[in-house]
Design a protein around this nucleic acid. Sequence first.
DNA 1: CGATCGCCGACTGCATACGATCGTGTCACG
DNA 2: CGTGACACGATCGTATGCAGTCGGCGATCG
Lengths: 235, 235
Amino acid sequence: MVRDEVRRLVITGELAPGTRIVEDRLAERLGVSRNPVREALQALAGEGFVDLLPRRGAVVAQVTAEEAEDLFDVRGALEPLAARLAARHADAAGVERLGAVLALARQATDVGDLDLLASYNTDFHSTVVDLSRNDYLGMLVAPMARRVQWVFRTNAATRAPHSWTEHEELLHAIAVGDEDYAEAVARAHVAAARASYRRVDGAPAHDRSPGPSAGVSAGPSLTSRSSAGAAFTRR
Amino acid sequence: MVRDEVRRLVITGELAPGTRIVEDRLAERLGVSRNPVREALQALAGEGFVDLLPRRGAVVAQVTAEEAEDLFDVRGALEPLAARLAARHADAAGVERLGAVLALARQATDVGDLDLLASYNTDFHSTVVDLSRNDYLGMLVAPMARRVQWVFRTNAATRAPHSWTEHEELLHAIAVGDEDYAEAVARAHVAAARASYRRVDGAPAHDRSPGPSAGVSAGPSLTSRSSAGAAFTRR
DNA sequence: CGATCGCCGACTGCATACGATCGTGTCACG
DNA sequence: CGTGACACGATCGTATGCAGTCGGCGATCG
């Protein structure tokens, strides 16, 4: 599918944030006509990977520090829910599937393939949502997981090891069916990821969100690549 | 925009759940070509209003009881978050905007225009999310609010009055900036809506979600407007 | 009489074509 | 030398055309 290919180009960074996307050129590059490309861009706009400016085309979305924080807030709401529901509904086969992803991730960790590890991370969370048996939640989280993968491709390296021990704990909680425990683990997982992010990326200039304040305040900010001034995308 | 028009057709029920959508016919009906219709259908598929079967076309999605419950679970996670963030970030102007929507809703209540009231309901929740200053949350909630409006168009009548006193309380919590209170009110609001839904729609056969069990088990179900027999819309 | 194979219509998916609109560069004028 | 209007090019939005595929229906065979 063309959509998946374009999304891959964006997530892997082959199309860097801020680059303008011209339908003609991308269509030629992919060897298709403009129509599938247009549909792909519409879909990716819905997922927040590109911004669609009427009559002016598409640009790969910028990830500002604020949006990363926003993402953490939402993850903090949805992932604990997914974990709780997964613990409630998961059966043996489901736990098996989760364990399989974990095993693959361990291999990828040993080999040191970070991109692969990141995609297993996405797989793990997607599987948890699958086990929650909440289709609507799945509809929301699937794009979000991809977005998370995109936003944190840069600092995934430092985060990975801790992340996976936390995943093991979540698997355990789900396996024994302890909803409260699963929810708590997921909550802690997101909080830890946020703290890790702040360590790597520098604390946000204006703390819009209390939570665990990142003690280590870090060096030069990688963020603020924002070029556009008027950044609002309301309708 | 064609997309908005098609979405309206679905939400208002002019295109009933289960009906097959043929691109040609809909295009002619709207007086445009197939291309805009195709893009609209893709977008609506992303929002969950239609199911897209590869090579077979689009079908207006069915809303099963399970999906309604799913929706409540997700609302129960996101709306409290939005309320908390709104209480944290809202300024006087924002509170003003919320109050304006409430005022309009009161008028609509007096007049008894239920469709209008439903859309104000959507507006209210959208505004709360706006005040939260979390763009990503807004991106998720905007389609969800429309979906809620769609799912509960049938029983909005019975629910409306209670709903709006709860809204007033939420407005107050946001106005005084009490995050915990705002979050609690939003949580209670969703729980009350769920209870109301279950009263009207009958308790789900297999209780997948504990929560406040609907004591009143209700008479003749208003639902089951489904025309088609095969009602499953899993992918 | 029932089941299977093949043909036919319908519709989607993609390609191509055209008109509309916006940004940009240039030229004239103050 | 700076500013404004005009015109051109680039690119989007929409329309039309064509080929591939899927489901339905009838004919043929067991």
